[in-house]
Design a protein around this nucleic acid. Structure first.
Length: 462
DNA sequence: CCGCAGTGTCATATA
DNA sequence: ATTATATGACACTGC
């Protein structure tokens, strides 16, 4: 979490963002995340290690990496287009990213010889990272998997000393609680491992939006375009949920992560939740031209993590398959604990992501509904108020009219002597059956009135 | 620089 | 017990 890295805002250079990306992916593998020590010590450890990692050039990496920082846009694209070894992509000093940036930034551009000891330190540290908790399983499992293990090892080591933007973000994908043992710098999987970075993987997988402010506009646009295509991975499963069944364990994995069907846009648009909005806070990709089918798309964090760990099936299947099919899928491959943990985290995050989107949509709809209802009720209230006013006015008119009629009727009543009745002694009352009686004030009860009225009414003038 | 909206993620509750 | 789903909360990004 960011809390562990105060001032963790990535700084200008692309080296920083690249390291962010890498480290973020590493940290996201929960299986490799260890019981982090106190934040302070953890921080210190990271910085120390990363300082040592800075040059990396002497670690078997091509020397194409320039000592001077290339133009941001150039570096931004090239670092993922080309199979630039991670160490070079990590050429920056992560320490600079998280603190006292200005000083460290200047150091970052120094050529490797300025830190001659680093190339020696890095290999030595490889003995340290698997030593914590579950982490030990990860490296051993990975290193036994295939011919690329030496590359993985390199990646692992470098990854140990780097932190990606993912890790800096609170929502970096770290399974803080759901999966035990978190955010381990010991993660050996290596993000964006060069050995997995094929040409078809294409341009950037820029996860570090935190770095965007320092990037050139071209990089920004590129990023958004990639995310537009990236969204397909979440939706294509419904159409072909079983296309994984016969795929070899690893051989096809590259295809899974790198190919995006251009006609998937329709599927995306048909979703209840448009997964096109996949980059948090980033503008909707629809504002940018869609990439060509041949253009590779960026990978989400989980995709990069999965790719780094060679998860042999695509994201959409991980996320969208029914649990039975998902478990069956898992049984078809031999996965390490690390891979299994990652796959389950990916599934959980993917489902929750959609759930959150739907939840927000429902909330907005509920707000809209309540606002509409409020308007209707306000309108009804105004109508009722007007009706009440009209009724009150009408009632007042009727009362006046009744009073007039009463006076007229009463004034025409005469007693047996032909004298008018005193208003003080008598009153007119109407019975429930509609008949009108002249009633003495002393007998204003209907029980008595019945007999008395019979005597009086014949005396009415009208 | 601040506020806001959108987003992803995590933790938790519930089915 | 496990899984899926829903939702509040948080952090982050871009505007």
């Amino acid at each position: 979490m960011t809390a562990n890295f105060p001032g963790a805002r990535p700084h200008g250079t692309l080296h920083d963002c690249e390291m962010d990306v890498t480290w973020q992916e590493l940290m996201a593998i929960t299986e490799l995340q260890f019981d982090a020590p106190a934040e302070g010590s953890f921080e210190a450890m990271q910085y120390q290690s990363m300082e040592a990692m800075a040059p990396m050039g002497g670690y078997g990496m091509p020397s194409s990496h320039s000592a001077l920082p290339p133009a941001p846009s150039d570096n931004y694209n090239r670092c993922y287009h080309d199979e630039v070894p991670l160490g070079h992509r990590l050429g920056g000093n992560t320490e600079a990213m998280y603190s006292h940036a200005e000083t460290q930034l200047s150091q970052r551009v120094l050529p490797a010889p300025s830190h001659p000891q680093l190339s020696v330190m890095a290999p030595g540290e490889q003995n340290t990272f698997p030593s914590t908790g579950q982490v030990q399983r990860g490296p051993s499992a990975h290193f036994s998997q295939g011919p690329s293990q030496h590359m993985l090892w390199s990646v692992h080591e470098q990854a140990l000393h780097t932190r990606s933007a993912d890790d800096l973000e609170s929502d970096s994908g770290l399974s803080l609680g759901s999966s035990p043992s978190l955010a381990s710098p010991d993660y050996p999987g290596g993000s964006g491992a060069p050995c997995y970075q094929s040409a078809e993987m294409g341009p950037t997988y820029s996860d570090g939006e935190a770095d965007m402010t320092d990037r050139v506009q071209t990089a920004r646009i590129h990023y958004s375009m990639e995310y537009q295509s990236q969204c397909h991975t979440y939706v294509q499963s419904a159409g072909h949920p079983s296309n994984f069944a016969t795929q070899p364990v690893v051989a096809h994995a590259q295809t899974h992560w790198s190919t995006k069907e251009p006609d998937q846009t329709a599927a995306v648009n048909s979703l209840y939740v448009d997964p096109g909005v996949s980059s948090r806070g980033s503008p909707h990709p629809s504002s940018f031209p869609k990439p060509q089918a041949s253009v590779s798309t960026p990978l989400s964090r989980d995709e990069r993590r999965a790719k780094a760990l060679k998860i042999p099936f695509p994201m959409d299947q991980i996320i969208n398959l029914p649990v039975d099919d998902f478990n069956e899928l898992l049984t078809q491959y031999t996965l390490t604990d690390t891979q299994l943990a990652l796959v389950r985290d990916i599934r959980r995050r993917g489902k929750n992501k959609v759930a959150a989107q739907n939840c927000r949509k429902r909330k907005l709809e509920s707000i809209i509904h309540l606002e509409t209802e409020l308007n209707q009720l306000q309108t009804q209230r105004e109508l009722l108020s007007k009706q009440r006013f009209e009724f009150t006015r009408s009632l007042a008119f009727i009362k006046r009219r009744l009073s007039d009629l009463y006076s007229q009727v009463f004034s025409r009543l005469r007693d047996e002597d032909g004298q008018p009745y005193s208003v003080e002694d008598y009153a007119l009352q109407q019975t429930p059956d509609g008949k009108v009686y002249l009633v003495p004030h002393s007998m204003k009860t209907w029980g008595k009135l019945d007999t008395f009225a019979a005597d009086l009414l014949p005396n009415c003038a009208n």
